[in-house]
Design a binder for these strands. Structure first.
Lengths: 224, 224
DNA sequence: CTCCTTTTTAAGATTAAGCTTAAAATCGAG
DNA sequence: CTCGATTTTAAGCTTAATCTTAAAAAGGAG
């Protein structure tokens, strides 16, 4: 998520991020940012130091105080190099700082570094849970050196699970996350796709990685 | 529980709360609120300042007077920032105040803060009592490094106990809290589930954590 | 110690949830 | 437009969990 008041900068960043495979959302000022963060639940924040209404510094402070965003990775974008020392001095809890002007390549590198440090799964071009490896660039999934052939929905479903391994997800959450918010399909549909996903994953007689939690939903086990 | 007359606001709040793992109910005006509070017994109230029929302020006052809702946590949602000081001045006994417009993230943070202050167990994603650990995210329970397999009702029952460890709970309270208000089942049914829960908990020959209090109910011991 | 109350236990009936299958509907490539 | 692949729905099947019942055991008062 980009928080930045200058539209041209937003577009520059968005272009670079999207072409690296990220999903991007943005906010133009601090107030909008707080709302959007809650709605979109970003995995990382690119936060401009200077912002209308609530300043970047203030957003950072607020986020660090809130329990569920305490560990949201933040990269601050600051205006001039000379200010850097001062900024780092009055550390507001950002994970990294980048000063304008910066090269997109450098920013991408820093983003990946911060994401990797925080959660090795997000932002990587490959997800790993138990003995399953998902290559997000090649759109391939392997388990135990065996290539799996998944349909589009099974792929998205497995990806959603792998990004949230160890959490029980309700059918409703899965429908929201995998199918989309305003799509109306039956709960039972999830069961069918779970079944297909299981079939592929456990083809070689491996243990079932997807745990059914009766009356709640399903969970991808972190470990075999 | 949300008490708010504007449906779009109710939906926004409900969406955010549900995706954070809360169970949500709501009322559209003060009269309905008083009834629903009695029926649903919420753990916390989000209360709009301005409401048709009985105002939010009045509800707050009434609740604070009533013995069984004296300590029900309340977060007031007020219309404008400028009024805040005045409102806080004529304190009606709410635990916190949030002014519109607010970010859902901020509200969630405040909810968790108020809940934590009131009962450190509710709203947390893991419960610990004696040597039992319940993971509410993964829906797993362990005692002494041993994974327990509980059915849905046993799980909910144990959760209810753990959130109220050390208190004796009547069968009626358990039925209300675990089964729900409008469900009609026999008292004896509780016994059977208690038995099943005990069976799982004490499988490895551990001490019985659930104490029977004759003619009253059951209690989960805080310590072994 | 005895009797009455309450709880525990066990077993069977019922209900609910999830799984499987197949057919209908939809989507997308050629 | 057509065909094949994928997704969705619906129905019946299977299994698990729940509730009830009733008998056995335990607890407490007199």
């Amino acid at each position: 998520m980009i928080v930045e008041d200058e539209p041209s900068m937003v577009e520059l960043l968005r272009y670079n991020l999207v072409s690296e495979g990220f999903e991007v959302c943005s906010a133009l000022d601090g107030e909008e940012a707080m709302v959007t963060i809650a709605e979109e639940k970003p995995d990382i924040l690119l936060l401009d130091w200077m912002l209308p209404k609530i300043s970047g510094v203030e957003i950072c402070r607020r986020l660090r105080r809130s329990p569920e965003h305490k560990s949201l990775p933040i990269i601050m974008i600051t205006a001039r190099t000379e200010e850097n020392d001062r900024i780092r001095g009055l550390d507001v809890g950002a994970d990294d700082y980048v000063s304008k002007p910066f090269s997109p390549a450098e920013l991408m590198a820093r983003i990946r570094a911060v994401l990797r440090r925080h959660n090795p799964n997000i932002g990587a071009d490959t997800l790993e849970v138990a003995d399953v490896v998902m290559d997000l660039v090649a759109y391939k999934v392997r388990r135990n050196e065996r290539d799996l052939h998944l349909g589009p929905t099974e792929f998205k479903l497995l990806r959603y699970f792998m990004e949230r391994a160890g959490r029980v997800l309700t059918r409703e959450q899965l429908l929201d996350g995998v199918w989309g918010q305003n799509v109306y399909v039956e709960d039972r549909t999830v069961d069918v796709h779970i079944r297909r996903l299981r079939k592929c994953l456990n083809e070689a007689g491996d243990a079932d990685l997807i745990r059914t939690v009766r009356a709640v939903g399903y969970c991808l086990e972190k470990e075999v």
